[in-house]
């Protein structure tokens, strides 16, 4: 059994085993997703092709389907505005989608800031930066509560004045102004101050979307735990490390599916694993319960017909 992979060798084994392309499959698809969403927003203003109009806060898909960020709509509502049906319908559509695929897929498949913080993480590993300053992973929920409370108290969408997620998306589509400053702030924070500080600890947008992941169908499943050689590379690349632990317990594992609401379904663990322990799956396909039923089926009842066969 292999031991923990040193930082500088992370990802090498997977590339050797599976080839570079397969070892970056989900990362590439994810980048494609993030960039094409941005691209769809830009097709209109640049080429006059209006597939997606607006920005991540609210948009119109092919001039018909309204899409609204439920989080910003919630802020608007608690700040005292009775909103219109178009916005509500748009929010319901987005809610339904993320309830199905997992709320935090917004973070790793849509959000433009993810590219920045992933770059930070890459640089941290390259330069072997270790910062001791640690933040609570619960901080984001406090901040989420604060954004809603401040909207309620001030009657204005206060968080939107500084929200890097919408600022960067809107900036790239409508004009960035000094918005690059906040990108740099987050990059510096994540690179030098604290590991995965923004997306993994502070961002209230991610916190909000995590709450939609409670029942999502699409999940990462550690289907082949027996192949795990404890190299720990999945931990090293996972943006939300804690979510993997329960499914990689060698003894006493009860669920093979990563059900933590903060798993972003980014698929890096699937890519990085040289022995293919993980795959995308439905949340019901728990290998443990399957194994249990298989074990049971081998024991008292199903063995009897076999005996009978022998006897006959």
């Amino acid at each position: 059994m292999a031991t923990m992979t040193p930082v500088e060798l992370i990802g090498k084994a997977a590339i050797l085993q599976k080839g570079w392309l397969r070892a970056h499959k989900w990362l590439l698809i994810r980048r494609f997703s993030q960039l094409s969403i941005l691209g769809l927003f830009l097709l209109g203003p640049v080429y006059g092709l209006w597939i997606l109009k607006g920005n991540l806060n609210a948009s119109l898909l092919v001039d018909v389907v309204p899409l609204t960020d439920p989080y910003i709509l919630l802020q608007s509502v608690v700040s005292g505005h009775l909103t219109e049906t178009t916005a509500i319908l748009g929010a319901l559509i987005v809610l339904a989608l993320y309830l199905l695929i997992g709320g935090r897929m917004y973070c790793s498949w849509v959000c433009p800031i993810n590219i920045v913080t992933d770059a930070s993480m890459w640089l941290r590993n390259k330069l072997n930066i270790k910062s001791s300053f640690s933040l609570s992973r619960q901080a984001r929920y406090w901040i989420l509560a604060m954004t809603l409370l401040s909207a309620m108290v001030t009657g204005s969408l206060v968080w939107e004045a500084v929200n890097p997620v919408s600022m960067v998306n809107r900036g790239l589509v409508f004009g960035l102004g000094f918005g690059w400053m906040i990108v740099l702030m987050i990059f510096l924070l994540d690179t030098f101050v604290s590991r995965r500080a923004w997306c993994g600890h502070l961002c209230p947008v991610g916190a909000f979307y995590s709450l939609l992941g409670k029942f999502s169908l699409l999940r990462v499943n550690a289907v082949a735990l027996e192949r795990c050689d404890s190299c720990m590379e999945c931990y090293a690349v996972c943006p939300e490390q804690k979510v993997i632990t329960p499914v990689l317990k060698k003894a006493g594992r009860i669920d093979s599916v990563i059900k933590d609401i903060n798993c972003t379904n980014c698929g890096r663990c699937i890519d990085i694993c040289s022995t293919d322990v993980f795959r995308f799956d439905l949340r019901f396909n728990n290998m443990e319960s399957i194994r249990l039923t298989e074990n049971n089926s081998h024991k008292p009842f199903n063995k009897q017909p076999q005996k009978r066969e022998v006897l006959s």
Binding site: K53, N57, S59, T68, D69, H81, S166, G175, G177, F178
Partner: peptide, 23 residues
């Protein structure tokens, strides 16, 4: 409190009169 900063009004303005406030 009512504006969710989506810019759809800006997009539908035929004369490019409207713009969204930048940082």
């Amino acid at each position: 409190s009512a504006c969710i900063r989506c810019g759809l009004c800006v997009r539908d303005c035929p004369y490019d009169t409207l713009k969204l406030a930048q940082p």
